[in-house]
Simulated assay, not measured.
Amino acid sequence: MRRIYHRFPQSIDLDFEINRPFRDVLACIARMHDTHTTARGADGLVKERILVLIADGRTQFLDLNDLVPLAENVTETADFRVDLQRTLLTPEKRLPVSDNVFFLRLVDRGAVTECYVAKEGRLGEMDAMDLRKMLKGACE
Rank of each mutant, 00 (worst) to 15 (best):
G137N: 12
D15L: 12
D56R: 09
I54E: 06
R3L: 04
D15P: 07
L53T: 11
I54N: 06
M126G: 00
D66R: 12
S11P: 03
G110W: 00
E140G: 15
A30V: 06
L95Y: 10
E140S: 15
R7S: 14
A128I: 01
R23C: 13
D43T: 15
D79I: 09
L89K: 07
N65S: 13
V68D: 08
Q60M: 09
R23T: 15
I18A: 00
V68P: 07
R40Y: 15
T90Q: 06
T87S: 10
L131G: 02
F80V: 11
D127V: 01
A78K: 06
L104F: 05
P21K: 02
R58W: 07
T90N: 03
D79V: 13
I18H: 00
R86H: 11
F16T: 08
F102W: 05
M129A: 10
G121H: 01
V74W: 01
D34I: 08
V74R: 03
A128H: 00
K93R: 14
E114S: 10
L95H: 10
K47C: 10
R86A: 14
Y116V: 08
N19E: 12
D130R: 03
R49C: 08
T37C: 04
R7N: 14
C139H: 03
V74P: 03
D99W: 07
M134W: 01
S98V: 08
I4P: 04
L70W: 00
N73C: 11
V68S: 09
D56F: 12
D34S: 13
A30E: 10
P9Y: 04
T113A: 01
D127C: 04
R31P: 05
V74I: 11
F61N: 07
F22Q: 02
I4D: 04
H36L: 11
V112Q: 06
A78H: 03
I4Y: 05
T35M: 01
E92L: 12
G44H: 05
R58C: 10
L26I: 03
V117L: 00
T35R: 02
C139L: 09
F16S: 07
A27D: 07
C115L: 02
R105H: 09
D34R: 07
L106G: 07
Q10N: 14
